[in-house]
Protein backbone atom coordinates (compact mmCIF):
# COMPACT_ATOMS: atom_id res chain seq x y z
CA UNK A 1 0.00 0.00 0.00
CA UNK A 2 1.31 3.43 -0.92
CA UNK A 3 -0.16 6.91 -0.83
CA UNK A 4 -1.22 6.89 -4.52
CA UNK A 5 -3.17 3.70 -4.10
CA UNK A 6 -4.77 4.86 -0.90
CA UNK A 7 -5.92 8.17 -2.44
CA UNK A 8 -7.00 6.24 -5.55
CA UNK A 9 -9.11 3.86 -3.47
CA UNK A 10 -10.60 6.77 -1.52
CA UNK A 11 -11.44 8.50 -4.79
CA UNK A 12 -13.15 5.31 -6.01
CA UNK A 13 -15.04 5.04 -2.75
CA UNK A 14 -16.06 8.71 -2.94
CA UNK A 15 -17.35 8.23 -6.51
CA UNK A 16 -19.59 5.34 -5.49
CA UNK A 17 -20.92 7.21 -2.46
CA UNK A 18 -21.55 10.41 -4.50
CA UNK A 19 -23.57 8.36 -7.00
CA UNK A 20 -25.67 6.68 -4.31
CA UNK A 21 -26.30 10.03 -2.58
CA UNK A 22 -27.29 11.66 -5.88
CA UNK A 23 -29.81 8.93 -6.66
CA UNK A 24 -31.14 8.67 -3.10
CA UNK A 25 -31.54 12.42 -2.40
CA UNK A 26 -33.12 13.27 -5.76
CA UNK A 27 -35.13 10.01 -5.81
CA UNK A 28 -33.97 9.82 -9.42
CA UNK A 29 -31.32 8.16 -11.54
CA UNK A 30 -31.78 10.67 -14.35
CA UNK A 31 -28.60 11.13 -16.39
CA UNK A 32 -27.03 7.92 -15.10
CA UNK A 33 -26.26 5.07 -17.50
CA UNK A 34 -27.73 1.84 -16.13
CA UNK A 35 -25.56 -0.01 -18.64
CA UNK A 36 -22.32 1.38 -17.22
CA UNK A 37 -23.52 0.46 -13.74
CA UNK A 38 -24.33 -3.09 -14.90
CA UNK A 39 -20.82 -3.36 -16.34
CA UNK A 40 -19.22 -2.13 -13.10
CA UNK A 41 -21.25 -4.69 -11.16
CA UNK A 42 -20.00 -7.41 -13.51
CA UNK A 43 -16.44 -6.11 -13.03
CA UNK A 44 -16.62 -6.28 -9.23
CA UNK A 45 -18.36 -9.66 -9.28
CA UNK A 46 -15.76 -11.29 -11.52
CA UNK A 47 -12.76 -9.68 -9.80
CA UNK A 48 -13.76 -10.20 -6.19
CA UNK A 49 -14.62 -13.89 -6.37
CA UNK A 50 -11.30 -14.36 -4.60
CA UNK A 51 -13.00 -13.06 -1.44
CA UNK A 52 -13.80 -16.71 -0.80
CA UNK A 53 -10.39 -18.14 -1.62
CA UNK A 54 -7.71 -15.56 -0.88
CA UNK A 55 -7.44 -13.37 2.21
CA UNK A 56 -5.23 -10.28 1.76
CA UNK A 57 -6.12 -7.92 4.60
CA UNK A 58 -9.08 -6.57 6.56
CA UNK A 59 -8.85 -3.40 4.43
CA UNK A 60 -8.96 -5.42 1.20
CA UNK A 61 -11.88 -7.58 2.30
CA UNK A 62 -13.88 -4.62 3.65
CA UNK A 63 -13.45 -2.57 0.49
CA UNK A 64 -14.34 -5.49 -1.76
CA UNK A 65 -17.53 -6.20 0.18
CA UNK A 66 -18.45 -2.51 0.12
CA UNK A 67 -17.83 -2.19 -3.64
CA UNK A 68 -19.87 -5.32 -4.36
CA UNK A 69 -22.75 -4.35 -2.07
CA UNK A 70 -22.89 -0.75 -3.30
CA UNK A 71 -22.84 -1.76 -6.96
CA UNK A 72 -25.76 -4.16 -6.47
CA UNK A 73 -27.58 -1.46 -4.47
CA UNK A 74 -27.04 1.01 -7.36
CA UNK A 75 -28.44 -1.51 -9.85
CA UNK A 76 -31.46 -2.06 -7.60
CA UNK A 77 -32.12 1.70 -7.39
CA UNK A 78 -31.81 2.22 -11.16
CA UNK A 79 -33.70 -0.81 -12.44
CA UNK A 80 -36.26 -1.33 -9.67
CA UNK A 81 -36.88 1.37 -7.08
CA UNK A 82 -36.47 4.43 -9.31
CA UNK A 83 -36.84 2.77 -12.69
CA UNK A 84 -39.45 5.35 -13.79
CA UNK A 85 -36.67 7.99 -13.74
CA UNK A 86 -34.17 5.93 -15.75
CA UNK A 87 -33.49 7.57 -19.16
CA UNK A 88 -33.65 4.33 -21.10
CA UNK A 89 -34.01 6.17 -24.42
CA UNK A 90 -30.66 7.91 -24.01
CA UNK A 91 -28.80 4.85 -22.71
CA UNK A 92 -28.38 3.21 -26.08
CA UNK A 93 -24.71 2.21 -26.21
CA UNK A 94 -24.25 -1.37 -27.46
CA UNK A 95 -22.57 -2.59 -24.30
CA UNK A 96 -22.77 -6.25 -25.35
CA UNK A 97 -19.87 -5.49 -27.70
CA UNK A 98 -17.68 -4.41 -24.78
CA UNK A 99 -18.39 -7.70 -22.98
CA UNK A 100 -17.67 -9.85 -26.05
CA UNK A 101 -14.40 -8.07 -26.83
CA UNK A 102 -13.29 -8.23 -23.17
CA UNK A 103 -14.05 -11.97 -22.99
CA UNK A 104 -12.09 -12.69 -26.17
CA UNK A 105 -9.13 -10.56 -25.05
CA UNK A 106 -9.13 -12.19 -21.61
CA UNK A 107 -9.02 -15.64 -23.22
CA UNK A 108 -6.13 -14.61 -25.46
CA UNK A 109 -4.03 -12.36 -23.24
CA UNK A 110 -3.76 -13.43 -19.60
CA UNK A 111 -1.15 -14.38 -17.01
CA UNK A 112 -2.41 -17.94 -16.65
CA UNK A 113 -5.11 -19.98 -18.37
CA UNK A 114 -7.18 -20.72 -15.28
CA UNK A 115 -10.79 -19.82 -14.48
CA UNK A 116 -10.03 -17.33 -11.71
CA UNK A 117 -7.19 -15.68 -13.62
CA UNK A 118 -9.29 -15.30 -16.79
CA UNK A 119 -12.18 -13.83 -14.77
CA UNK A 120 -9.75 -11.38 -13.14
CA UNK A 121 -8.29 -10.42 -16.53
CA UNK A 122 -11.78 -10.06 -18.03
CA UNK A 123 -12.72 -7.72 -15.17
CA UNK A 124 -9.63 -5.58 -15.80
CA UNK A 125 -10.40 -5.26 -19.55
CA UNK A 126 -14.09 -4.65 -18.98
CA UNK A 127 -13.43 -2.01 -16.31
CA UNK A 128 -11.24 -0.10 -18.78
CA UNK A 129 -14.23 0.49 -21.08
CA UNK A 130 -17.20 0.22 -18.70
CA UNK A 131 -17.66 4.01 -18.55
CA UNK A 132 -18.29 4.28 -22.32
CA UNK A 133 -22.12 3.93 -22.08
CA UNK A 134 -22.13 6.77 -19.50
CA UNK A 135 -19.89 9.03 -21.62
CA UNK A 136 -21.98 8.17 -24.69
CA UNK A 137 -25.14 9.16 -22.82
CA UNK A 138 -23.66 12.55 -21.88
CA UNK A 139 -22.58 13.12 -25.47
CA UNK A 140 -26.09 12.27 -26.61
CA UNK A 141 -27.88 14.61 -24.20
CA UNK A 142 -25.12 17.24 -24.37
CA UNK A 143 -25.05 17.88 -20.64
CA UNK A 144 -24.63 16.41 -17.17
CA UNK A 145 -25.78 17.53 -13.73
CA UNK A 146 -22.91 18.85 -11.64
CA UNK A 147 -23.20 15.99 -9.12
CA UNK A 148 -22.93 13.50 -11.99
CA UNK A 149 -19.79 15.26 -13.18
CA UNK A 150 -18.31 15.13 -9.64
CA UNK A 151 -19.04 11.40 -9.68
CA UNK A 152 -17.27 10.99 -13.02
CA UNK A 153 -14.30 13.09 -11.94
CA UNK A 154 -13.77 10.97 -8.81
CA UNK A 155 -14.24 7.75 -10.78
CA UNK A 156 -11.81 8.81 -13.51
CA UNK A 157 -9.19 10.08 -11.05
CA UNK A 158 -9.11 6.72 -9.28
CA UNK A 159 -7.47 4.80 -12.14
CA UNK A 160 -5.18 7.73 -12.90
CA UNK A 161 -3.92 7.56 -9.31
CA UNK A 162 -3.46 3.81 -9.74
CA UNK A 163 -1.08 4.55 -12.62
CA UNK A 164 1.07 6.58 -10.21
CA UNK A 165 0.81 3.63 -7.80
CA UNK A 166 2.07 1.26 -10.52
CA UNK A 167 4.99 3.56 -11.33
CA UNK A 168 5.83 3.65 -7.62
CA UNK A 169 5.54 -0.14 -7.31
CA UNK A 170 7.74 -0.64 -10.36
CA UNK A 171 10.57 1.45 -8.93
CA UNK A 172 10.22 0.49 -5.26
CA UNK A 173 9.04 -3.13 -5.41
CA UNK A 174 10.07 -4.13 -8.92
CA UNK A 175 6.44 -5.03 -9.53
CA UNK A 176 5.01 -4.62 -13.04
CA UNK A 177 1.74 -6.06 -14.33
CA UNK A 178 1.32 -5.02 -17.97
CA UNK A 179 -2.29 -6.17 -18.17
CA UNK A 180 -3.32 -3.88 -15.32
CA UNK A 181 -1.08 -0.99 -16.40
CA UNK A 182 -2.09 -0.87 -20.08
CA UNK A 183 -5.78 -1.30 -19.24
CA UNK A 184 -5.47 1.44 -16.63
CA UNK A 185 -3.91 3.78 -19.16
CA UNK A 186 -6.75 3.10 -21.63
CA UNK A 187 -9.31 3.57 -18.86
CA UNK A 188 -7.85 6.91 -17.74
CA UNK A 189 -7.42 8.02 -21.35
CA UNK A 190 -11.15 7.65 -22.00
CA UNK A 191 -11.78 10.37 -19.40
CA UNK A 192 -9.43 12.95 -20.99
CA UNK A 193 -12.14 14.95 -22.79
CA UNK A 194 -14.30 14.84 -19.71
CA UNK A 195 -11.44 15.96 -17.42
CA UNK A 196 -10.85 18.94 -19.71
CA UNK A 197 -14.52 19.96 -19.58
CA UNK A 198 -14.66 19.39 -15.83
CA UNK A 199 -11.66 21.62 -15.13
CA UNK A 200 -12.62 24.37 -17.57
CA UNK A 201 -16.34 24.45 -16.74
CA UNK A 202 -17.52 22.64 -13.62
CA UNK A 203 -14.67 23.85 -11.40
CA UNK A 204 -15.54 27.41 -12.45
CA UNK A 205 -19.11 26.93 -11.32
CA UNK A 206 -20.61 26.38 -14.76
CA UNK A 207 -22.72 23.44 -15.85
CA UNK A 208 -21.19 20.64 -17.85
CA UNK A 209 -22.59 21.27 -21.30
CA UNK A 210 -20.88 20.01 -24.38
CA UNK A 211 -19.80 22.50 -27.03
CA UNK A 212 -22.28 22.35 -29.93
Amino acid sequence: MNVFRLIGDMSHLAAIIILLIKIWRSRSCSGISGKSQLLFTAVFTCRYLDLFTNFVSIYNTTMKIFFLASSYATIYLIFMKFKATYNRNHDTFRFELLIVVSVILALLINHEFSATEILWTFSIYLEAVAILPQLFMITKTGEAESITSHYLFALGSYRGLYILNWIYRYYVEGHLDWIAVLSGIVQTGLYCDFFYLYITRVMKGKNLTLPA
Binding site: R5, H12, V56, E112, E117, H175, L176, D177
Partner: peptide, 10 residues
Protein backbone atom coordinates in the same frame (compact mmCIF):
# COMPACT_ATOMS: atom_id res chain seq x y z
CA UNK B 1 5.15 -11.30 -13.43
CA UNK B 2 3.76 -13.22 -10.51
CA UNK B 3 0.03 -13.28 -11.26
CA UNK B 4 -0.80 -12.98 -7.56
CA UNK B 5 1.08 -9.73 -6.98
CA UNK B 6 -1.72 -7.59 -8.40
CA UNK B 7 -4.44 -9.30 -6.43
CA UNK B 8 -3.97 -7.11 -3.37
CA UNK B 9 -5.20 -4.20 -5.49
CA UNK B 10 -8.87 -3.37 -5.81
Amino acid sequence: VNADDSKDEL
